[in-house]
Design a protein around this nucleic acid. Structure first.
Lengths: 132, 132
DNA sequence: TTTCTAATTTGTAATCGTTACAATTTTATT
DNA sequence: AATAAAATTGTAACGATTACAAATTAGAAA
């Protein structure tokens, strides 16, 4: 908890109660939640919480680069406090999103060396181990 | 044009005038357009065109697997009639989306062999060759 | 502590992309 | 030409996100 406060400060985010709680939620729940989920869970702990605050906060986190959006489905944005480059897999059956370590330097992409790459994203869709 | 009709039929899509035009647009404009762009361009040629038809048609194309959605930005869905696995790069400056050939078999991802992968997606963000 | 100012949070209303749905038009079949 | 089915259209509804102004909170200065 103290660590989260420090981490937010280091990244230029003033650690308000709501911001700490939202970031903490993302750290503890690595299931890549949607805004709606974050809100529904936290409003139980913080009854005055507004959904706008969740949106504002996530937007701020994005700007400061301490969370990344996960885009797999056309109609949902998920958030991840793990900002290292890693792959995601979404199961078509159970809907769960899994993380996978990936070494992108293995990948040689012709022509890309002339571009300045700032972010790399990889994701897969299919049926997960459990559902198979 | 005749080819497009055939291609649609082969994939279970009855080739109506609108469907042909929309697919043709995606084939000719490999700039990964958004729904809005497709509609704005085609309504000039087909004045009676409805945006709902564009949505319906793209949804049908998705179901039949002849287009794929490109998700890079949180608030926009782009469409691509090239359904082979390839990478995308979106320039933060000019907004253009580039294609890159990629050989995913180079990539070894530990644990993924136990999952059934149906789709693979890779994209990058940064500054493109032109804008550098 | 008290006061003042700035930052944050909140709630409501507005906006935008997308979908639902019923009516109309087109296409295919008899 | 008549009929039925499919596709298209336009409008209304919906849901996620944003804008905005008011209320609250936090921090600094007196």
């Amino acid at each position: 908890m103290k660590n989260i406060e420090e981490y937010l400060k280091e990244n230029g985010v003033k650690p308000s109660y709501q911001r700490i709680k939202i970031f903490e939620y993302l750290i503890k729940n690595k299931n890549h939640p949607k805004v709606e989920t974050i809100f529904q869970e936290l409003v139980q702990e913080i009854p005055t919480l507004s959904k706008t605050t969740v949106y504002n906060t996530l937007k701020l986190f994005l700007e400061k680069g301490i969370v990344q959006p996960i885009l797999i489905e056309e109609n949902e944005v998920r958030y991840d406090a793990d900002i290292t480059t890693h792959a995601h897999f979404k199961c078509e059956k159970c809907g769960e999103v899994y993380d996978f370590r990936v070494n992108l330097s293995q990948l040689k992409i012709e022509g890309l060396e002339e571009f300045q790459v700032k972010e790399s994203h990889i994701y897969f869709k299919g049926i997960c181990k459990k559902c198979l």
